[in-house]
Deep mutational scan, measured.
Amino acid sequence: NKFNKEMRNAYWEILLLPNLNEQQKRAFIRSLYDDPSQSANLLAEAKKLNDAQA
């Protein structure tokens, strides 16, 4: 399933972002589970926040 693969990839990438705190990571991951079809958008948002907090 395409969404499962995308979601899994986004999950691990979000977990490994160094500048997000645990609460932020949990919020993004919760959103991933709520709507896996938004994986790419959520990952992009997480990366943007990660860069902003660098």
Rank of each mutant, 00 (worst) to 15 (best):
Q53K: 06
A40Y: 05
L20V: 13
S37H: 08
A52E: 10
N41V: 13
Q23I: 08
R26G: 09
L16G: 15
E6R: 01
M7E: 07
E13H: 14
A46V: 05
A44I: 10
E13A: 13
L15P: 01
Y33A: 02
N21D: 10
N50D: 10
L32M: 04
I29Q: 03
L43Y: 03
Y33D: 01
K47A: 04
E45R: 12
K2Y: 04
Q24A: 14
P18N: 08
M7S: 04
S37F: 06
R8S: 08
K5W: 01
R8L: 14
Y33R: 02
L16E: 09
M7N: 01
S39N: 05
N21P: 06
P18L: 05
M7D: 02
N21Q: 14
R30Q: 13
L49I: 08
F3Q: 15
K2L: 06
A40T: 06
D51L: 07
W12T: 05
N1V: 03
L15W: 02
L15N: 07
D34K: 12
L20K: 00
N19R: 11
A54F: 06
Q53G: 12
W12V: 04
R26L: 04
A27I: 10
P18D: 05
L49W: 12
S37V: 06
E6S: 02
A27K: 11
K5Q: 05
A40L: 14
K48Q: 12
I14V: 04
Q38R: 11
I14G: 01
K47P: 00
E6F: 01
P36R: 04
Y11T: 04
F28Q: 03
Y11R: 06
Q24E: 11
A44L: 11
A10W: 01
F28R: 04
N41S: 09
L15V: 10
R8Y: 15
A44E: 06
A27H: 09
E22F: 13
E13I: 15
A44Y: 13
W12Q: 05
S37W: 10
A44S: 11
K5M: 01
A54V: 13
I29H: 06
N9D: 12
N9Y: 15
K47I: 06
K5I: 01
D51Y: 09
Q38P: 02
R26S: 05
N21V: 10
L42Q: 05
A44P: 03
N1G: 12
N19S: 10
Q23S: 05
K25R: 11
I14S: 00
I14Y: 01
A54S: 07
N9G: 05
N19L: 08
F3G: 15
L20F: 02
N50A: 10
Q38V: 04
Y11V: 11
A27R: 09
R30Y: 13
D35P: 01
N21R: 12
K5E: 15
K47M: 04
F3L: 15
K2D: 15
N19G: 09
L15R: 10
L43P: 02
S37T: 13
E45Q: 12
Y11Q: 03
N41D: 08
A10F: 02
Q24K: 06
L32Q: 01
S37L: 14
L43Q: 10
E6A: 04
Y33W: 12
A27D: 10
N1E: 13
A52Q: 09
R30W: 11
E45M: 12
Q24W: 07
D51F: 10
Q24Y: 05
L15H: 13
L49S: 07
A40R: 09
D35Y: 05
A44Q: 11
K25T: 09
D35V: 07
Q24S: 07
E6H: 03
S37K: 14
E13S: 12
A40G: 06
L49G: 04
N4R: 02
Q23L: 05
A46L: 01
N50E: 05
Q24V: 13
W12M: 03
A52W: 10
N4G: 12
A52M: 11
F3Y: 09
N21H: 08
L49P: 00
L17T: 06
L42E: 03
K2M: 11
F28L: 12
M7R: 00
P18G: 10
A27E: 10
S31K: 09
L15S: 09
Q24F: 08
E6L: 03
L15G: 03
S31H: 09
N19F: 11
R8Q: 15
Y11H: 04
L17N: 03
E13T: 13
I14A: 01
F3D: 15
E22P: 15
E13K: 15
K47F: 07
D35S: 06
Y33K: 04
F28G: 01
E13L: 11
I29N: 02
K25E: 02
L43S: 14
L32G: 01
Q53F: 08
W12Y: 08
D34F: 09
Y11M: 14
A27N: 14
E45I: 12
K48W: 14
A54R: 09
Y11L: 09
L20M: 06
D34L: 13
Q24P: 01
M7K: 00
K2I: 15
Y11A: 07
N4T: 09
F28M: 13
I14H: 00
N19E: 12
K5R: 02
L20P: 00
Q24I: 10
R26Q: 07
E6K: 02
L49N: 09
L17P: 00
L42P: 03
K48P: 01
A54N: 14
L15K: 11
R30H: 09
N9E: 14
A10D: 01
Q38I: 09
K5V: 01
E13F: 11
F28V: 06
L15A: 03
N50H: 14
Q23N: 07
L43H: 03
F3I: 15
K25M: 03
E6M: 03
N19I: 09
L43E: 06
N4K: 02
N41I: 14
D35W: 06
K48H: 07
S31Y: 14
N41L: 11
F3E: 15
E6N: 02
Y33N: 02
P18Q: 03
Y11F: 08
P18K: 07
E45L: 09
L17G: 01
D34S: 13
R8G: 02
S39H: 14
L16A: 11
A10I: 11
L17K: 05
R26P: 02
A54W: 05
Q23T: 10
N50M: 03
I14M: 08
D34N: 07
A44H: 14
S31P: 05
N9S: 05
Q53W: 11
Q38T: 13
I29D: 00
W12G: 05
N41R: 05
S31V: 08
A54Q: 09
D51S: 11
Q24L: 07
L43V: 07
L42I: 07
S39P: 13
L20E: 00
N21M: 14
S37I: 05
F3H: 15
Y11G: 03
N41A: 09
A44N: 12
P36S: 09
L42K: 06
E6D: 07
E13Y: 13
A44F: 14
A46D: 00
I29P: 00
K47N: 06
L32V: 03
A52I: 08
Q38G: 05
R8D: 04
Q53M: 09
L43A: 13
N21G: 13
M7W: 15
K2F: 12
K5T: 01
K5N: 02
R30F: 07
P36A: 06
N21I: 09
Q38Y: 09
I14R: 00
Y11W: 07
A40D: 07
